[in-house]
């Protein structure tokens, strides 16, 4: 331990600096407090933070602020154990009045739900369904199966003018949203002779795999003229692959590859506006925040929330209805 003291100090200082940079005073990590009137505090625990989650967080903060709640925010970095510890801390140490949770794992969250129930803390889950639905105060999720069906409807409509050879990208095979979207899409397409899924490529929600998979599929099946992208954040990868294959053309062009995505984020909205995307099934992110906070108010008033479980299908945004529907799509906001 007597040798290289300077090097050790540099190493420790560098690590500490980077750690501090990573845990800086942002609303994305650690805890943030929204503006409230002091009616109580809502603890929010997210599985991760990305573009969709950032919008969900904003929706919760807006709804909480208008209802007079403070918000304490934690992110579990896709670690179910970490999320359980954070929720325990929110309940026992920070003594929040209610919880809004996006579970990293719908089954492993059971112990946190039990703890909240034992301490009489309302537990609201959003976006991802949990196994113990009967023990949560309220649950509102998207309906991935219905979203997949809505996406398939767009393909069925487009196939009326010309037969479609479809490349279907699939998200992570361990994610219920990815599986729901895939199944809804696949089941709806069955029996339509003018629609053929010629290739099904897993992406593991990884943009690089989406890029390589799309390039490979276009190489194998040059006749592909339609692509189902299960999330907006994979859209740049798909467009990059189309561009490399010299297949990227605007809607209406004879070379255009028919594209439908799900989420309704800024990428999707921008692409529809730029006429490079045909349709986007937008998740009702604002509705999640509003209804979750309403449910907490109801539960804290010792009333029962009815219905206890809500599955909210997305809204179809396409070239025809863009002007009228964009206001309801979270990614089209300023």
């Amino acid at each position: 331990m007597r040798r290289y003291p300077v090097a050790r100090c540099v190493a420790v200082a560098a690590m500490a600096t980077l750690a501090l940079a990573a845990c800086g005073p942002t609303s994305e990590s650690g805890s943030g407090v929204g503006s409230g009137k002091g009616h109580g505090t809502i603890g929010v625990s997210f599985d991760l933070l990305n573009a969709v989650r950032t919008s969900e967080k904003s929706a919760i903060e807006r709804a909480a602020a208008s209802a007079g709640y403070k918000v304490v925010f934690d992110v579990a970095d896709q670690d179910a154990q970490k999320q359980a510890s954070q929720i325990q801390d929110l309940i026992q140490t920070r003594r929040v009045d209610a919880l809004i949770v996006i579970a990293q794992d719908g089954k492993q969250i059971a112990s946190s739900i039990s703890l909240a129930k034992a301490r009489h803390v309302p537990f609201v889950t959003i976006d991802r369904a949990v196994a113990d639905e009967q023990d949560v105060s309220f649950q509102i999720t998207g309906d991935p199966h219905a979203d997949g069906e809505l996406a398939a409807d767009e393909f069925i409509a487009a196939a009326r003018t010309k037969p479609l050879k479809v490349l279907e990208l699939v998200g992570a095979l361990t994610d219920q949203n990815a599986i729901g979207r895939r199944d809804g899409f696949g089941n709806t397409l069955k029996g339509h002779a003018d629609l053929t899924v010629v290739s099904q490529v897993p992406t593991d929600w990884d943009p690089s795999q989406a890029l390589d998979g799309t390039s490979n599929a276009l190489q194998k099946n040059p006749g592909i003229n339609a692509i189902f992208v299960p999330s907006d954040f994979l859209l740049p990868s798909v467009q990059s692959a189309l561009s490399t294959a010299k297949r990227l053309a605007p809607v209406g062009d004879t070379k255009h590859v028919f594209l439908v995505t799900i989420d309704g984020d800024q990428n999707g909205c921008k692409a529809i506006r730029g006429k490079t995307l045909d349709a986007d099934i937008a998740t009702r992110v604002d509705q999640f925040g509003t209804e979750a906070v309403q449910a907490i108010t109801t539960t804290l008033a010792a009333e029962v929330v009815v219905p206890k479980t809500v599955r909210s299908a997305g809204v179809t945004l396409d070239q025809a209805n863009f002007a009228t529907v964009k206001a309801r799509v979270w990614g089209c906001g300023d």
Binding site: R8, A11, M15, L18, A19, A21, A22, C23, G24, T26, E28, S29, L49, N50, A51, R53, T54, D77, F233, P236, D265, Q266, N267
Partner: peptide, 28 residues
């Protein structure tokens, strides 16, 4: 530090990803 590389780089894995998230705001 003579701490095994596995442990050190497991820690920096978190640090670097956190720093990247800080810079991008977790946005596309």
């Amino acid at each position: 530090t003579r701490v095994p590389a596995l442990v050190v780089t497991l820690a920096t894995l978190q640090v670097f990803r956190g720093a990247g998230g800080h810079i991008t705001g977790q946005q596309n």
